[in-house]
Structure formats: structure tokens, C-alpha cells
């Protein structure tokens, strides 16, 4: 029993109402790691992230952050403990400006909001300069790539220690994907811990230290990212994804 993991899940079951999706999921993320969670569409990756942040309640099992239980913690509490999620589909506040979205990202700073906004804006504008050009535009008028950058930036405004990302590459052009992943590399070098969910297994594993493979709500494989990249079954899943475009 080690206490050194930043995030730990033990035998977690979760789902929507009576529909169970996650079965007996155990995983961990250590401080400073970039961990990839891969698996095909519908495997339960988003369900897992929503359960970690408390948008869904685990029906059994335990979740720990830095050795403390966060099993039934609400998202609004968890963000104050340093966990931020960049949700699937971005979920931006569309009719509000880029700046307002970012200011809301620092909402959890409470009384220290003024400083948090100032420091946070400086940091995310450095990471994504295009956002500072767009600061007074409504979020919904941004391109897909800019919206994804804003979603990442909004999450960073809470100064998280653990950043969870749900398919940040989805639907974006390769050039934009490269830009977002190079930002993730910068964050990593600064010591940020990242749990990255991706359907694009190759992309995720290329950037990750370790990886987990998920299928129908279960973790079926885990290991070093470099090992998973060459693993026969992962190659099958990955190739299966490509073939699956027509057959699934």
C-alpha cells in the first residue's frame, strides 16, 4: 500500500442511473506523470473522467487524491483540491466572451480571484497567444481549435495540480492538434500531472509515460507507453479502430 500516488482508483463501479458502465476499475496516476487512457468509442473513458471529478457518483469502490478520499466529492469541491477537467465537447460558455470564460475558470479562487485571474491570464495567453487576440470575442464565434484551446485554458485558470483532458484532439486539424499537444508538453515540463483520454491511441501514447487500455467499462491492459505502442493487442485495437470506421 503506497501513499505516493497523486490519484488512485480502487475497484470503481460507476454509470448512469441503473446503467452500469464502469466495472471494477483500478488505476493510479503519480505526480508529474502524463498517463494516457485509450479505448474505442463507448468504452467508458468519459464516464471514468466524470466519475473522477464527481459529476457521476461511484456506486462502489474508492477514489483517493494525495492519500485522501475523494469518493463522494462534488466537482465544485474537487476543483478547489486542484483537479480540473477539460470536458468532452468543451462545454464552453458560448455567448460569453473568451475573457469571461477564463475569469469563470478562476471562480474557485474565491476571495483571491483578482490575483488568480491576473496570473492565470498571463499564463494561458503565453501558452495560447491566439486567445489574447480573441479575448473580447464570444466563445461561440471561435474556430474549433481555438475553442479547444479555450477549454484547456479555462481549466488551467484554476491552477490545477492534476489536469484531466477528454479527447482534446477530436475533430481538429493536424496542425491544431500539434499546437495543443505542444502546450501539454510545456505544462508537463512545468510539473503538471496529466491524465489524457484519447481515441487516437498512437497520438496519446506518443506523449505519455504510461497508459491504460479500456474496453467495455474495464481496464484490460496497462503499461509503459512505449510498451503499449508496440503491443500486439494494442495494435489490433488501434488498427481495429481504423477498420471499424466502416464496420462498427
Amino acid at each position: 500500500m503506497t501513499n505516493s500516488h497523486l490519484l488512485e482508483l480502487h475497484n470503481v463501479d460507476s454509470g448512469y442511473g441503473r446503467t452500469q458502465v464502469l466495472r471494477d476499475v483500478s488505476l493510479h496516476v503519480d505526480a508529474g506523470e502524463l498517463v494516457a487512457l485509450i479505448g474505442s468509442n463507448g468504452a467508458g473513458k468519459s464516464t471514468l473522467l466524470k466519475t473522477i471529478v464527481g459529476l457521476l457518483r461511484a456506486s462502489s469502490g474508492e477514489l483517493n487524491l494525495d492519500g485522501n478520499s475523494i469518493t463522494h466529492m462534488t466537482p465544485e469541491k474537487l476543483v478547489r483540491r486542484g483537479v480540473a477537467l477539460v470536458p468532452e465537447g468543451r462545454l464552453l460558455f458560448g455567448p460569453m466572451t473568451v475573457r469571461e470564460n477564463l475569469e469563470l475558470g478562476a471562480y474557485s479562487a474565491g476571495a483571491r480571484r483578482g490575483t488568480a485571474v491576473k496570473d492565470g491570464l498571463r499564463r494561458v495567453f503565453e501558452l495560447f497567444p491566439v486567445l489574447s487576440e480573441r479575448a473580447s470575442q464570444h466563445a461561440e464565434t471561435l474556430s474549433g481549435g481555438e475553442q479547444q484551446m479555450l477549454a484547456v485554458a479555462r481549466a488551467l485558470m484554476s491552477s490545477p495540480t492534476l489536469l484531466l483532458l477528454d479527447e482534446p484532439s477530436l475533430g481538429l486539424a493536424p496542425r491544431v492538434i500539434a499546437e495543443i499537444f505542444s502546450a501539454l508538453e510545456v505544462l508537463r515540463r512545468e510539473g503538471m500531472t496529466i491524465l489524457l483520454v484519447e481515441q487516437d491511441a498512437r497520438l496519446a501514447l506518443k506523449h505519455a509515460d504510461r497508459g491504460y487500455v479500456m474496453r467495455t467499462g474495464e481496464i484490460v491492459l496497462e503499461g509503459a507507453a512505449s510498451d503499449l505502442l508496440t503491443d500486439e493487442s494494442v495494435r489490433t485495437i488501434y488498427l481495429g479502430l481504423l477498420k471499424g470506421e466502416g464496420s462498427a
Binding site: 459529476l55 462534488t74 466537482p75 476543483v79 480540473a84 464552453l92 469563470l104 478562476a106 471562480y107
Partner: peptide, 10 residues
């Protein structure tokens, strides 16, 4: 606008 996203920012 976005209840879940609002909760995620605290």
C-alpha cells in the same frame, strides 16, 4: 448555460 461546466469551475 452549461450546468456541468459551471460546476467544474467551482
Amino acid at each position: 448555460l452549461r450546468r456541468d461546466a459551471a460546476r467544474l469551475v467551482g
